[in-house]
Nucleic acid binder design. Structure first.
Length: 226
DNA sequence: GCCCAGGGGGCTC
DNA sequence: GAGCCCCATGGG
């Protein structure tokens, strides 16, 4: 972790945000027309880019499976064929089933009931569902439940290690605490901040082909990869 | 042909 | 509780 003062870190984080927002504009996250679609997307995007998830979501929609009770009643094989593009499709179909089972059997499919609790309680509950780890739980809390928790991911790890804030072996919780300590807990701000980071990660900061020269925050990077 | 992609579960020690 | 392997496809 860096040794700079908290105030300095706060200003740096805000400056990064301004640079990214200036480049991309509002990103309108999370893509999804319903809370259920957001949750499905959060599970499907595990370890895969959104492009593949979009195909899978379209497939699910086309046969009416992007519906809580439809997904609850239909066999897992129906889900599998729709989500092949998202990698690990057999496991992810099982994960979707576990999530929808929980939602229906405990809350009769009512998200407002499921989300009507503190962030800490909701997070603990989500982490108890098969297939939901820290990042997926936090994505659901922020984007579906609209409660202020900062979502971090592989892009956050990579970008902020290249910016010099930590090394790559930092834990998920360390990264999350870092942002939540230095940024005000506002749902819409956390929403947009994470969306901006993913934008930068996608376009400029891949492991294969970094494009630092065009990246809106690369001038702050300590390490430049060519 | 090879590498890697926005995680998470399960096992080992 | 860290360190591995597994899942299993598609694009650059």
């Amino acid at each position: 972790m860096v040794m700079a003062g908290d105030n300095e870190i706060c200003s740096q984080l805000h400056a990064f945000y301004e640079s990214m927002y200036g480049y991309f504009g509002p990103r309108g996250w999370w893509p999804g027309e319903s809370q259920f679609e957001i949750c499905v997307g959060a599970i499907l995007t595990q370890s895969v880019s959104w492009k593949n998830v979009a195909k899978a979501i379209d497939n699910l929609k086309s046969i009416g499976l992007l519906d809580i009770f439809e997904m609850y009643h239909r066999p897992v094989e129906d889900i599998e064929v729709c989500i092949v593009p998202t990698l690990y499709y057999k496991m992810k179909a099982r994960k979707l089933k576990c999530f929808v089972n929980h939602l229906v059997e405990k809350y009769n499919g009512d998200f407002s009931r499921m989300f009507n609790k503190s962030i800490a309680e909701l997070r603990k509950e989500l982490l108890g569902i098969y297939g939901i780890g820290p990042e997926t739980a936090d994505s659901i809390i922020l984007y579906a439940a609209e409660k202020p928790i900062f979502v971090v991911d592989a892009y956050t790890r990579r970008i902020f290690s290249r910016l010099g804030f930590w090394n790559e072996i930092v834990t998920y919780e360390q990264m999350q605490e870092f942002f939540m300590k230095h940024l005000p807990p506002e749902t819409q701000f956390y929403n947009e901040y994470h969306a901006q980071i993913v934008g930068v990660g996608n376009r400029f900061c891949s492991n294969k082909k970094p494009r630092c020269a065009e990246c809106p925050i690369s001038s702050k990077c300590k390490k430049i990869y060519s």
